[in-house]
Amino acid sequence: MFKLINIIGLSITKILSEMGRMVLLFIETLSWVFRPPYRPFLIVKQLEFVGVKSTLVVIITGLFTGGVLALQTYYGFKMFSAESLVGATVGLSMTRELGPVLTGLMVTGRAGSAMAAEIGTMRVTEQIDALSVLAVNPVEYLIVPRVIAGVIMLPILTVLSDFLGIAGGYFVGVNLLGISSGAYINKLIQYVDLSDLYNGLIKAACFGLILAFVGCYKGYTTSGGAEGVGKATTQAVVMASAMILVADYFLTALMF
């Protein structure tokens, strides 16, 4: 009995101290964002890694998500003879929800995990210590460019995803299911506001921050050799994905 309480207490302390470490690291990261040295090339490199290299996966998810949405909602709306609303549904779902969230999750899987693995390896091979010894702050050198890249690139990837989702929905709805193209486009324009798009992009920027920071945090705090790196990578993906979904709820509640 006493042992059980002890275990519970220990795990709570562990969770709390992890949260505390995360917050402290986050504050340190933020404090370096607006302080020199600025590292434009490192940022560009991360922009390429997070953004350009995620294009294909975002294209595929965007197109097919839009297509599936059109397909599914078509059969639902058909019962009410409201097939013309398929465009509006695809547009609203993509811009407000699926564009940002799916992009966030896909990029977490691709880039967030890679960040955790990369920084984790640097940690266990003492490369991070080496940076410190060479009088370079590892937070500023490793985490800040990645977080900036995440915040910048996720909205851009999300715009692509939104656009391709709508295009995929158009293809399925208009070309395969025979909804009139005017109805698809007009209802979409009628029901989807500019604020839907922009709020979705704000969400995406938050998701970019989450996935980059969690990936970096998990990598930065890796211990236990190669095995530890593997664990950190998995944890980064799980944690970032969960946090993205939780944050999505609160952001949605705040914005819409």
Binding site: M122, T125, E126, Q127, V133, L134, A135
Partner: peptide, 22 residues
């Protein structure tokens, strides 16, 4: 951190596995 940074410039360190940036 800033003071530590200055101190560290007086140091060099060779790590166990060299810790080269790969």
């Amino acid at each position: 951190p800033r003071g530590l940074k200055e101190v560290r410039k007086r140091f060099g360190m060779l790590f166990q596995e060299a810790a080269l940036f790969d």
